[in-house]
């Protein structure tokens, strides 16, 4: 018999034939053979007649609809901001993806100018609301979403939250942002 449950497999290894079980995650079918396409261990689900691979390594993750991301604001225009997504959930990406934050997804009534929401360089926590064609649309229309770390536009020092106001602790400049509940934490 070929490889069975618990067996270590590398890409291309034959696990069985389609007459025995259907191909599950981590496997593919070629000319009637079920083969592994990743490095991992075989798991054969005899009840549902399915074979899949418990992976030893996972491929780089992508932002998905609903996932909370952390990114840096790259540029701000009057109605939208471009965000460089660095982190998905708790996982750091090896590269980055670009997301768009539109004025209609801020959630505080009518936003006249995105510069009242965030500025270039700010670190922002946002939720992915659309991923069509690798265009990531983001939203910060929740209390726990928004800017989590910001810099003074006058002197570049970090802004700290004092009495519900963002104030630069070096030059005293007061700025406007849509901040998240956990601003400045972690």
């Amino acid at each position: 018999m070929h490889n069975r449950s618990g067996q270590f497999v590398v890409p291309g290894d034959k696990i069985g034939v389609i007459e025995e079980f259907a191909s599950g995650p981590g496997t593919y079918v070629k000319e009637g053979d079920v083969r592994s396409k990743i490095v991992g261990r075989v798991v054969v689900d005899l009840l549902n007649k399915r074979a899949f691979i418990y992976p030893s390594v996972r491929a780089a993750s992508f932002p998905k609809v609903g996932s909370v991301i952390v990114g840096q604001v790259q540029s701000v225009q009057s109605k939208l901001a471009l965000i460089r997504i660095m982190k998905v959930g708790k996982r750091q990406l090896s590269g980055f993806f670009t997301g768009v934050l539109h004025a209609s997804d801020i959630g505080q009534g009518l936003i006249k100018n995105m510069r009242d929401v965030c500025l270039a360089g700010d670190i922002i926590q946002a939720k992915v609301i659309s991923e069509k064609n690798m265009m990531y649309h983001l939203s910060i229309a929740e209390r726990n979403l928004g800017v989590i770390y910001a810099f003074c536009s006058q002197c570049g020092y970090n802004l700290s939250l004092r009495e519900r106001e963002l104030r630069c602790s070096r030059c005293g400049n007061v700025e406007r942002r849509k901040i998240a509940l956990n601003y400045g934490v972690e």
């Binding site: 890409p11 396409k37 390594v57 491929a59």
Partner: peptide, 9 residues
């Protein structure tokens, strides 16, 4: 394979 990218072989 180390990057976890699915390959045929």
């Amino acid at each position: 394979a180390d990057a976890g990218i699915p390959t045929r072989d």
